[in-house]
Design a protein around this nucleic acid. Sequence first.
RNA 1: GCUGAUGUGGCUCAAUGGCAGAGCAGUUCACUCGUAAUGAACAGGUUGUCGGUUCGAUUCCGACCAUCAGCUCCA
Length: 643
Amino acid sequence: MLKITLKGGDIREVAENTTVDSLCREISMGLYKAACAAKVDGKVLDLRFALTKDCSVEILTFDSDEGKKAFWHTASHIMAHAVQRLYPNVKLAIGPATDSGFYYDFDSEEPFAQEDLQKIEDEMKKIVKEALPLELFSLPKDKALDLMKDQPYKVELINELPEGEDITFYRQGEFVDLCAGPHLPDTGRVRAFRLLSITGAYWRGDSSKKMLQRIYGVAFPKAGQLEEHLVRLEEAKKRDHNKLGRELEYFTTVDYIGQGLPILMPKGARVIQILQRFVEDEEQKRGYLLTKTPLMAKSDLYKISGHWDHYREGMFVIGDPEKDSEVLALRPMTCPFQFQVYLSRMRSYKELPIRLSETSTLFRNEDSGEMHGLIRVRQFTISEGHIACRPDQLEEEFRGCVDLAGYMLKAVGLDEDVYYRFSKWDPNNRDKYIGSPEQWEEAQERMRQILNDLKIEYTEADGEAAFYGPKLDIQIRNVHGKEDTLITIQIDFQLAERFGMEYVDADGQKKYPYVIHRTSIGCYERSLALLIEKYAGALPLWMSPEQVRVIPVSEKQAEAVKSAAEKLRAAGLRVEADLRNEKLGYKIREAQMQKVPYMLIIGEREAADGTVSVRSRRDGDIGAMPFDEFIALARREVEEKAK
RNA sequence: GCUGAUGUGGCUCAAUGGCAGAGCAGUUCACUCGUAAUGAACAGGUUGUCGGUUCGAUUCCGACCAUCAGCUCCA
C-alpha cells in the first residue's frame, strides 16, 4: 500500500499502481468529475498517471490555473482532431492553452472562413461525444520523426528536442499529437466550447516565417459557464474605449487625416488637460523643472543619440537623406532634446540630481497594422522626464520615480489594475542594443537590487529593454485582455556618455551621471483610453469633462438655469445647461447616457425657493437641496481625489 | 508590415447591374411639459477613394485609403 498525502494534509492509503483518477473517485464523485489534472510531488500530471510510491497529491480542478490549462489544452487537441478529420491536408503547428482559452495554429492552403468555424465546432461535438481516452505514449526520436513524417512543423519541433530523450505524444482515437501534456483523461469532459476567431499568426512568432491560420476558442466544463463567459466578452466590448470614446465624443478619427492620428474632441481634450495640470503640478512639488523643447531636429542630433541607427524606421523624416544637405526628423523621444538643458553649462556634483520634466508630444511612424484607438497612435503626448544623478543617488531617485508613478496610478484609480515588469536586454540580439555586455549586466544588477529593496513584485522579460538600458515597465491590460505599457522607468548608462553630459565630482574629476528616463502617468492618450475602459466612460468627478448638467423642467426656468450654470462655473465646476425644448425625462436619459456625474433639475418649485433637485450618476435622485449646499457637496467630492 | 474580415446620411441597418430607403439623432414651428421617445414640416448621400468592365456600376473586377480581430513591432 502507498501513503498518499492530500492537499489538506489528509493521508490516504491506496494500492500500488492506483491511478490518480481512481484516487479521486475514492475521495468523492464530485471531485472525480471536476478533476482536470493532478500535481504529484509538485509536478503537474495526467489523472491517468499511476501512483507507484508514497507521494503528495493535489487534485487540480477547473478552478485552478493548471487545471484550466489542462482543460483548454485538451480542447485544443479536440479542435485539431476535428480539423484533421474535415481537412486532411491541413498541417498542424502548435496549439497551447492561453490565459483565457486556447488556440491551434494550422497551415492551410485555403484560409479558414467564418463558416468553417461552425463546421469544426460540429465535428468537435462528435469527438466529445465519442469520449475518446487521451493516451500518453513516448517514442525514441527516430520513431517519433517517422510517426510525424507528414507533419513538417512537428518534424521541426522534434528535431530541436534534446537527443537521447524519449518524445511524448498523446493519442485520442485516430488523432496523435506531439505533446508534453498534461491532458484530461478523455475528450468527453469538454462539454461546452466555442470557437471565437480566425486570425493569422507567424510560425514560431517570427515575422520572417510563414503566416499560419490560428483559431482561438474557449471551453468550460458546464454550458452555463460558457454562456457567462460569452456575456462577459460582450460586456467588455461595451467598455471598449475605441467604441465608447467615440460614442461619448472624447475623440474621433478621419480617413484623410490618417491612421493613428486621432482628433481629441472637447471632452477628450479636457480630460487630458486636467491630467496634465495634475501631473505638472505634482512634478513641480517633487522638484522637477519644466522644459519645452522642439518637436523636431536635424538628423545630426539623432546620430549622436543612436536613434538614427536604432530607430530610423520609427521616425518621420522630413527630406531625403540621399539628396538633401539638411534632413530633419520629428522627435520619437524627448531625451536628446532635454539633455541639451543639462549640457548648457558645466554641472557640479552638488547640483545633482537634476530633474527635468516636459509634457512632450512625440511622433512615431508605427507600422500600419499597429494603430488602435487612443492606445497605439502615431502622435502622442507623454509626461516625460529625465533625471541626471550620481551613482550614489540612483536608488533614491529611482525610488522617487516609482513612488510618483504609484501616486499617479492611485489618484486616477488604476493602481489595482497594473503589474510590474523588469525588462531586460537580450544578449543573443546584440544589434538591438548599445553598450557592452558588462555594462548591461551591471545596470540590470543595479536595477534588480533597487527593485528588490523596494519590495516590488515583478516579472522579468528578456528582450524588452530600451536600446540604451533596462526598464521597469508598469503594465496594464485593456478591456480585451491585451497588454500594454502604461508607465516606464528606465536606467540609462549610455546616453550621458554619448552626449558628453558630465559633472565635476568632489574629487575634481569629470564623470558621467546616470540618467533615469521616466514617465509619471505615461502617454495621456493611452491613459485616457484605459480610464474610459476602467470606468466604462463614467470618470470620477474630478476628471469628468462635464461635471454638472443643469436642466430646466420647462422653458420658463431657462433664465434660472442659465444663472445657475454661471454660478457653478464661477465656483470652478465644469457645467453645461440643456436648454432644448425636450421633455424632462428625455433630457435626463441623455445626460445619463453621456455619464454626466450630476444633474441639477430646476422647475417651478426650485426656482421659487432657490433649491435644486439633484440627481447623481451613482445614486440616482438625491432630492432637493439649497444651491450652495450642492456646490459644497461637489467641491468635497472633487477634493477627495488624491487622498 | 503580415493574415483575414469590413466600409451605404451623425448612429443602427435595408435594398438593387437601371431614380438609394427606414428608424433614431438633427433643424424649424406648434405644445410648456417633473424622470426618454407629442404633432407637423424640413434638411441630410458623388453608397470610403481612384481606376477598369458595361449602353448603364452603389452592386462585378483591380488598386489604394480607413476600420476591426489577431500576429509581428512598441509608450
